[in-house]
Amino acid sequence: MATYSTNEFKSGLKIMLDGDPCAIVENEFVKPGKGQAFNRVRIRNLKTARVIERTFKSGDSVEGADVVDVDLQYLYNDGEYWHFMDPQSYEQLTAAAAAVGDAAKWLKEEAICQVTLWNGVPLSVAPPNFVIMTIVETDPGVRGDTSGGGGKPATLETGAVVRVPLFVQSGEVIKIDTRTGEYVSRVKE
């Protein structure tokens, strides 16, 4: 893998740090009036998603991380692994639970997800920003009842639970923003 000089640092660059793949979030060049220059960097560990601060001497090099984002189609879950397919090459890849994480509850078969690969192995999975799902269970709400104001919980076909307005009923199909986990609208099929 390539190495990168601090001169090439910019947000989004993928580098190795303490054996983990990381992405640069923010890079600031600092230099006293005379003397050693530094790059102050905020870095996200792509395994843990934790953001940490590091400083490098300007001009030093770090090892790059072989990390790429690819769009893959979700196929199925065999109970242990999540299976994806590259829609161009039909190549199949499996992702472990640690990589899928919270995305699992938004994964519906055939959905196109952004999968981050590290050395060719899925490191994390981002579900589509919006998903369409069927409500399998929710309390029958009373139309016009606005008490509580926040709606009611509804369980979706994948097991995810979202808050929906009181007028939305079991069996209905709804659109959800996966980034916030919030109900967007009903969908007429």
């Binding site: 600092v30 230099k31 006293p32 003397g35 050693q36 530094f38 102050r40 400083t55 001497k57």
Partner: peptide, 11 residues
């Protein structure tokens, strides 16, 4: 010590 002084000064 100078690079260390620069580090502490800038940060």
């Amino acid at each position: 010590t100078d690079p260390w002084l620069d580090l502490l000064l800038t940060h």
